[in-house]
């Protein structure tokens, strides 16, 4: 899987909403998944996420599935372990020494879908938010000094460069015979052989990049101007407001 950012330029309700509002929305979701430990509410939340992805974010079902399938695989293993390890009372099924309890099944389902829901909401956020807008909201709305916020651009900018470099190093070393030797010690050596050139190539650029940035006035003033601006929209405020209200109500209901 590539580390390059997964923003998909499209038009949709979620695309139009600014990143901060979406973060608020994500936080609501996190709170909600956290207060329930049984399957039904978690399944409902997950369904809501899927609908949001398809209806509000204009993402195709296949895109969502492709985005979460690794996580889904992971969850299956997780589900099994949870089912077996979490204690319970009502026996549903048993094979030999393995006993499956209703409570553990319920709990495992809940936790598994908790993970999938969080993951889908994050996928929606990522696919609908231009990284530029994220950085700009950090500085314009959250008042984080742009010198620091900008590091996110630098990081994202160099991901593809490093990835192609990593590919080349892998091939170059294979040709030298790396990988022919067996044994744990050699495997560890190989890790070093791979990581060092990658790291050195990257660090060699650091000084040049920093100098270029400085000579282009980076950090010259405490603030700067922007050719893009971020505005909270009415739609966004309504959307976030609705979610906050819903979350507060459900939390109150749950703990009364």
């Amino acid at each position: 899987m590539s580390l390059a950012f997964q923003y998909h330029e499209k038009k949709s309700f979620m695309h139009r909403i600014d990143p901060i509002t979406k973060v608020v929305w994500m936080m609501c979701i996190s709170v909600l998944v956290f207060i329930y430990e049984s399957a039904i509410p978690q399944l409902i939340l997950f369904a809501v996420m899927l609908l949001t992805a398809i209806l509000l974010a204009n993402l195709s079902f296949t895109f969502v599935i492709r985005g979460i399938w690794i996580m889904a695989l992971f969850s299956i293993g997780f589900f099994i372990i949870q089912t077996l390890l979490v204690p319970g009372e009502t026996v549903v099924y048993s094979i030999g020494p393995l006993v499956i309890h209703k409570e553990s099944l319920d709990f495992a389902t809940a936790i598994t879908f908790r993970i999938l829901t969080i993951f889908t909401s994050s996928l929606i956020f990522v696919a609908t938010s231009d990284p530029r807008d994220i950085v700009i909201s950090l500085t314009q709305k959250l008042k984080i000094p742009y010198r620091y916020a900008y590091s996110l651009f630098v990081a994202l900018r160099f991901v593809p460069t490093l990835e192609s470099e990593a590919k080349i190093i892998e091939a170059a070393q294979k040709i030298r015979g790396v990988g022919k030797q067996k044994g744990l010690k050699n495997k560890i050596e190989n890790l070093k052989r791979f990581s060092l050139p990658l790291l050195m190539g990257a660090i060699r650029r650091v000084q040049v990049t920093a100098n270029t940035m400085e000579s282009k006035g980076y950090g010259a003033y405490a603030d700067r101007t922007y050719i893009r601006t971020i505005n909270f929209s009415k739609q966004g405020i309504l959307f976030a407001g609705a979610w906050i209200t819903l979350t507060v109500c459900l939390v109150v209901l749950r703990f009364i």
Binding site: S2, L3, E163, K187, F194, L199, A202, A210, Y218, G219
Partner: peptide, 24 residues
């Protein structure tokens, strides 16, 4: 300093990149 910031940005990603490529 700016160099520090750029270095931190690079270190923040190099680990992730290495891990995705480290079949080994």
């Amino acid at each position: 300093t700016t160099v520090d910031i750029v270095l931190m940005a690079i270190l923040a990603i190099v680990n992730g990149v290495a891990m995705t490529y480290l079949a080994m």
